[in-house]
């Protein structure tokens, strides 16, 4: 690339409050992946600031970022990214190992979160014995495992059939009702519709940031 810099994202500024359910939308190449990497503390901005939970994350070292990811961010990936050949329980317990949660508490916590996503009867199934939807639910339980500040989902339904996708979205809605902050990256409008707020990015710029009217309406009906 030589000396020229490719700017993936610039002049993007927004706040997300605790308890929000935000969808970040945009076509491929819009910079939404870069945005997701920033929000997930997987990468730091070359300039600008990212304040998470009152802490400026933009200038941290790799190890400090690892700790932020471990303590404050629960990832849900498009490709699930579970450890192969291990049980659902083991997968959910993985981030707890890095968070130094005492060994005797891990299994109970993992059980609790797996029950929350409806997999109470699949605790010891290995990942290859689970369907795609079930694997993504294990991934959500894993994201919950360290009680994160935000749950960051990157195209969580991208690898799933639409029925399974709906199930995942229902889980997200329930978690949001319980007070979890959820940020979801997607390019599918009907998935984004589940969120309460939709941020649109295009060509590295923020082009709209608005409350989801439809969602508000359906909520006021209830």
């Amino acid at each position: 690339m030589g000396d020229s810099q490719t700017v993936a994202l610039s002049d993007v500024s927004f706040d997300i409050a605790k308890g929000e359910f935000v969808a970040i939308m945009g076509p491929s190449g819009s910079g939404k992946s870069t945005l997701m990497h920033m929000l997930g503390a997987l990468d730091t901005p070359t300039s600008g600031k990212y304040v998470l939970d009152g802490q400026d994350v933009s200038k941290l070292t790799d190890d400090e970022l690892a700790e932020i990811r471990n303590k404050k961010i629960g990832f849900v990936f498009q490709a699930f990214n579970l450890l192969p050949r291990r049980s659902a329980l083991k997968n959910v317990m993985l981030p707890m190992i890095y968070a130094n949660i005492p060994k005797n508490q891990r299994e109970n916590l993992a059980k609790k979160y797996l029950e929350m996503v409806g997999l109470g009867n699949r605790l010891n199934h290995t990942t290859n014995q689970l369907s795609g939807g079930q694997q993504q639910r294990v991934a959500i339980a894993r994201a919950l495992a360290i009680n994160p500040t935000i749950i960051l989902a990157d195209e969580p339904t991208g690898n799933l059939a639409s029925a399974q996708g709906e199930e995942i979205m229902d889980i997200f809605k329930d978690l949001n009702e319980e007070g979890h902050t959820i940020i979801m990256i997607t390019h599918e409008p009907d998935i984004a519709e589940h969120a309460k707020r939709i941020i649109m990015v295009k060509d590295g710029k923020l082009i709209s940031d608005k409350k989801n009217k439809q969602k508000e309406r359906s909520k006021s009906k209830n």
Partner: peptide, 16 residues
């Protein structure tokens, strides 16, 4: 390598 990436994303430090 993907497993390493996942472990890092979940909070494993390089040294770990």
């Amino acid at each position: 390598i993907r497993e390493i990436g996942l472990r890092k994303a979940l909070g494993a430090k390089k040294s770990t």
